[in-house]
Amino acid sequence: MKILVTVKEVAEAEDDFDIDGLDIDERYLEFDLNEWDEYAIEEAVQIKEDGDDVEVVSVTIGPERAEETIRMGLAKGVDRAIRVWDDAFADVGMLDPKTKADVLSAVVEDEQPDLVLTGVQAGDDSFGATGVTLAETIDFEWGAVVNALDLDAGAGVASVHRELEGGIEELTDIELPAVLTIQTGINEPRYASLRGIRQAQSKPLDLHELDDLGLEESDLESPLSRTAMYEPESEGDATVFEGSAEETATELASLLRDVGVVEG
């Protein structure tokens, strides 16, 4: 059985930052693995540890800078990694979910995985759509926002809990091959061990350029582009009540009365 995990290195901004053109000034950015992808990797590695003959492959679309982040996945038990990059990506700027899904589908074509795990969303641009778009593109079954997964590899069925709006959970059986988008909290991601980090240095991390995937620059043309970047003005102020529970509860009650939430 083969599991493909799509991962992304995302930028996280400091509390105070400046905007430089269409992006946050890079001085204020730190790059790390997307939080949701941590859980997707852990889920895949646990399936590997519980099963026989399971290979876990990670794939990312990202520049060379992302390699160390990708290698941390290898240190946690991913068997090999694929990094898709080409100068053309740098020129494009923003990739919309459909474009990303097209690129990833070329990797799926090569790898023929039985199961694809993605994070629910990426912490930076937060489309939350790449996983499902990929499933549609490659004609796999899919389940979004999965927070519990029980895989019967023999029967080729994934029994999942899906987190829906309003605290409702849906229980569904999904036939493989499938794409599941993984929600945080589904497991407890491990720390990489030092031995794992050591072994990760010699695990394969292959670069695939557009040519290698049978793609062309025109495949990266995205209908979406970023036109402006600004910090929204904050409206309304937060009131912080300090003191004992009795005092603060009284203060809150009178505020709720004043603003008309509670009558009387």
Partner: peptide, 15 residues
């Protein structure tokens, strides 16, 4: 080296 940077990052996170 990469191994050293990754180890430092992991240990820092753990700490």
């Amino acid at each position: 080296p990469s191994e050293h940077r990754m180890t430092r990052e992991m240990v820092r996170e753990f700490c």
